[in-house]
Computed example of a mutant assay.
Amino acid sequence: MRLRFFQKHGVRQAVFAYAVLSPAIVYFLVYFFYPIAVELWASFFRGQPLIGEAQFAGFDNYIQALTDERVRDAFFRTMIFAISGTICTLVPALCLAAILSGPIKAATAIRAIIFFPYIISFVIVALMWKSILDPYTGMLNAALAYFGLPMQNWLSTPATALPTIIGVTVWKDIGYAMLIYIAAIQTIPSDLYEAADVDGATARQKFWRITVPLLTPTTLFLAVISMIAHLQDLSAPYLLTGGGPAEATRLYALHVYETAFVELNIGYASALSFLMLIVILIVTALQFRFLNRETSY
Rank of each mutant, 00 (worst) to 15 (best):
Q7F: 15
P163K: 05
V212S: 07
V71L: 08
S121A: 11
M79D: 06
T219C: 05
T67L: 15
R72H: 15
P92W: 04
R289P: 01
S226A: 15
A143S: 12
S43W: 12
W171T: 07
P217W: 09
A183Y: 13
I104Y: 11
I280N: 10
L264I: 06
F44L: 10
L286E: 06
S190D: 02
F288K: 09
G148V: 07
Y268H: 14
R111G: 07
L291N: 09
Y297A: 12
G148R: 01
M79Y: 11
A203P: 02
P189D: 02
R4Q: 11
N265E: 04
V123Y: 15
L275M: 12
I87N: 07
A246T: 05
S296I: 04
F261S: 06
V38I: 07
P163V: 03
G244W: 02
I174R: 00
L21D: 03
P237N: 03
P217R: 01
S235Q: 13
A253M: 15
V198A: 12
N153C: 09
G10T: 02
I166Q: 00
L254I: 09
R4A: 10
Q48R: 13
L179I: 15
G167M: 12
S190Q: 14
N265C: 00
T259Y: 06
A271M: 03
W154I: 09
I104C: 08
A196I: 12
N265W: 03
F75C: 00
T295F: 02
R12Q: 15
N153K: 11
Q152D: 00
P35S: 04
F122G: 04
A236I: 07
A142L: 05
D60L: 14
A143F: 11
L40M: 04
T137F: 12
I25Y: 02
T202F: 03
P237Q: 06
L90F: 06
S226Y: 09
I25H: 02
L234Y: 09
M227R: 05
L222I: 11
V168S: 01
